[in-house]
Simulated assay, not measured.
Amino acid sequence: MTTAAPTVGARQLRTALRGHASGVAVLTAATPGGPAGVTITSFTSVSAEPALVSFALAESSSTWARVKDCQRFGIQLLGAAQREVAERFAAAGVDRFAPPTRWHTGPHGVPLLDDCAAWLVGTRHRQLALGDHQLIVCAVEHVRIGSPRDSLVHLHGALQAAPGAPPVPESPQSAER
């Protein structure tokens, strides 16, 4: 299959995508230099069977330089009340794990943030260079679900709440259909 050269510039693409809400998460990893982490909006589910998720990081990111050799990652899904956490992990030149950040060491030594809507720990499954980013697919090994809460999303260039009722658990009868 032949693909045409892209005719859309980065600015035009960003403008078009500003109106598409993206969930906000924090990626963490244990590195030889200590814990590393960064706010991401590229997190997505890939497959339920097997349990796979993905995220992308810019190769120019200082966090990418620290986590590129890591095999395990933590992904924290943030609630609307965690805007300050998202901002801290997006900021340059700060110790993201210093107080007031509350975190603990989770499975396989992965640093995990406290009080998130949910966190996942996964192992690098595949990696693909795409443009100026690296796409990492992780096989999910551990999940912890926090209390239901509104999600934090990135929309129109800002972090904001995405209100909504928690999902209704699926009944055994509906799961069999």
Rank of each mutant, 00 (worst) to 15 (best):
L78A: 06
P32L: 05
A48V: 14
V85F: 08
I145R: 13
Q173E: 10
W64V: 01
S60R: 10
A161T: 14
P163E: 12
V24P: 04
E49D: 10
R124Y: 10
S147H: 10
G131T: 09
F43G: 00
D115F: 00
P167A: 11
A30I: 02
C70Q: 12
A36W: 08
L159W: 12
S54M: 06
V85Y: 08
T31L: 08
M1P: 14
V67F: 05
I75E: 01
L159Y: 15
A51R: 08
G146C: 04
P50M: 09
A81W: 08
R177E: 07
P169I: 10
P35M: 03
H154L: 15
R14C: 08
Q160K: 11
L78D: 03
V137T: 07
E59S: 02
A81N: 05
R96W: 00
G157M: 13
E84P: 00
Q76H: 13
H20C: 12
D69V: 04
E49Q: 08
V24Y: 03
G93L: 02
Q160N: 15
G146K: 10
G122F: 02
G23R: 12
A80E: 05
I75M: 04
Q82L: 06
A30S: 10
D115C: 03
L13D: 04
R83S: 02
V85L: 05
H108A: 15
P32E: 03
D150E: 15
P148K: 13
W64S: 05
G157A: 07
R14H: 11
A118H: 01
A30M: 08
P32W: 02
S61G: 00
L52H: 05
A90F: 09
D150P: 06
G164S: 11
V121C: 04
T3R: 13
P148A: 10
V8C: 15
G34W: 05
S151K: 13
Q82R: 03
L27G: 07
S151F: 09
R149T: 14
R18Y: 12
A98T: 07
T101M: 11
I145L: 15
S174E: 14
A90T: 05
S45E: 03
S60F: 00
G74F: 03
Q71L: 11
A51M: 07
R66Y: 04
G109V: 09
L112F: 06
G23H: 06
L130C: 08
R96M: 01
A56E: 04
T28H: 07
V67W: 12
S47F: 06
C116V: 13
D150Y: 11
E84S: 09
A129Y: 06
H142I: 13
G93I: 00
T41Y: 03
S147N: 15
S47R: 03
R72Y: 10
A98P: 02
P148I: 09
L112I: 10
